[in-house]
């Protein structure tokens, strides 16, 4: 559920509707730098109407999905 929504946001952000994204995809592999990561995490937070702690390392899409799942549980 969460992953699907996150993938949709990512595809819109990159404007690539056939972008392949899995839990293991890293932001780096998706050619997203640290500034993109901040933008995206905030967009994802807004979409789920929640906020996640960004003090740890966020490397993969799975990291974000897990944090969101925890936040909305």
């Amino acid at each position: 559920m969460v992953l699907e929504k996150v993938v949709e946001i990512l595809r819109n952000y990159k404007d690539e509707q056939d972008l392949e994204v899995t839990m293991d995809s890293t932001f780096e592999e998706l050619e997203l730098d640290s500034l993109d990561t901040v933008e995206l995490v905030m967009e994802i937070e807004e979409a789920f109407d929640t906020s996640i702690e960004m003090d740890g390392e966020i490397k993969t899409i799975g990291d974000v999905v897990t944090l969101i799942e925890k936040a909305i549980a």
Binding site: L35, V38, E39, M42, S51, M54
Partner: peptide, 12 residues
Amino acid sequence: VPSTGLARFSER
């Protein structure tokens, strides 16, 4: 900050 995203994040 070098971008609006980090600025918004900092404000929050």
